[in-house]
Structures are given as structure tokens and as C-alpha cells.
Amino acid sequence: MQAIQLHQPASLADAAKLRSGNDDARFLAGGQSLLAAMKLGLNSATDLINLAALPDLAGIKVDGNRIVIGAMTRHADVAANADVKRLIPALAVLAGSIGDRQVRNVGTLGGSIANADPASDYPAAVVGLGATVRTNQREIAADAFFTGLYETALQNGEIITAVSFPVPEKAGYVKFKAPASRFALVGVFVSKGTGGVRVAVTGAAGSVFRAAGVEAALAGNWSAAAAKAVKLSADNLNSDLHATAEYRAHLIPVLASRAVTAAG
């Protein structure tokens, strides 16, 4: 790996300052995507700002009808958390399906959504539940957070502190895994709650997106059959060596129907 300057700030303000004005600096959360990318020469960061020592960024709290998960909370801890399993079991299932066990022991919620890999799992939950991303500067609605391929609404020096998930009436997540990488070839998160029906799709396009056609079908009739009957266009979906756009378009309603079944 390239030589780096490693910064170990003790406060959010110091961390933000280190990033401001340095385009070659990156925040280090768990590092499970970042370090791998640097080793492959896909990321040329010269400075890493380790967020591990910052206080209060890890942990899971129930706050009224929401679960607030700190940005540095590891996937394994979300998957095993009793409150998450009780209130949003689909979120626990999703966190427990990321990567492999060793990756889940280190990787974090904030790191995952800041990286915004188009095939990662957490964006599906953030958008599929209509969560709110909290940063050191503001609150960002899920629908405004993911803006493109590895792109988010985060500004230079902006640090995710937590994600606040509303507890839904029902939710389910099912992904079709690429066998080698375990990333989602397509993953679909469905939920029904006070904000209505949401259907978020990961792995199928440049960024997570809401499948409006499936949402409309499920709003009228929350059933696996209603989701499965939807026909989606393959326009703007990914085609690669793993699957064509048409195949992905076919998978979305199929996985949505399975997610509805999983939601119970």
C-alpha cells in the first residue's frame, strides 16, 4: 500500500478540519472497502483520518419510534442487537448478510453508506426505510443522500455521526448474491409504515433507487403476488459479466415479492 499520513483526531471538529482543503485525505472508519481499494491502487489517498477515537459514534439506541445507530457501529453489532432484531428484524438480517463474518466484525454503517458502493446492502435499508442520515452539520433525508455511483450528498469535511431509522410496520430484505463476492447482484428492501410503502433497490444501477412501480403495486395491495406482477424496464440498469440489465429488471419484482413474504 502507498505511504500515508495517519491522523488520529480526538474530536469531530478536528477530524473535519483535517479533511477540509485536502482532497487527498479520506476518513477511515472500519476501512473494509477503503483499505482494499487503496491496496488495489483504486484509491490514491495520501492522508487517512482515523475516526476510531472519536467519542459517541458507535452504539445503538431506541428513541421513541426510531432506532438510532451510530456511524461507527459495526455490522456484526447491528446484526446481533436485541432492539434491532425486535423492532426492525429486516435490518438485522441485512447487516448480518454483508460481506463475510470477518468483514462484519470491522466494517461500519457510516463507512458503508459514505462509500456508497452501488452493490452494497446498507443503502437499500437507508432508502427502503426512509431513514435520516445525521452528520456533524445537518440531517439528510435518505432520498437526498445517495446521488450517484459512489456519490453522496456529503460535503468536504462532513462526517456522518448516526443514521436514524423509523420503525416500520413491516419490512423485508432479500438479495440475490453474486456468488464469489457476496455483493448484491440485486437486493430489494421493502417496508410499510407511517410514511407509506417504500421499495429500495441496490446492485441494479449506478446507485440505490426506489422502484416506483413496485411501490405503487404494494401500496394498493401489500402482497407477494402484487409485487411479482410488476414489469420493469431495463433502461438505465447495469449490464456486466454477472448479469444483463434485462435479468436485473426481472429480478427486482421477484426479489421484492420474496421480501414481502419475508416481512410477514
Binding site: L6, Q8, L28, G31, Q32, L35, A36, L48, N50, A52, R101, Q102, V103, N105, V106
Partner: peptide, 11 residues
């Protein structure tokens, strides 16, 4: 259990 090739010693 962690993958020690994907973690800085400093971490």
C-alpha cells in the same frame, strides 16, 4: 475474527 491484511496495524 478479522482479516489482518485489511486492517492497519495502527487500527
Amino acid at each position: 475474527a478479522v482479516k489482518s491484511c485489511n486492517l492497519l496495524a495502527a487500527q
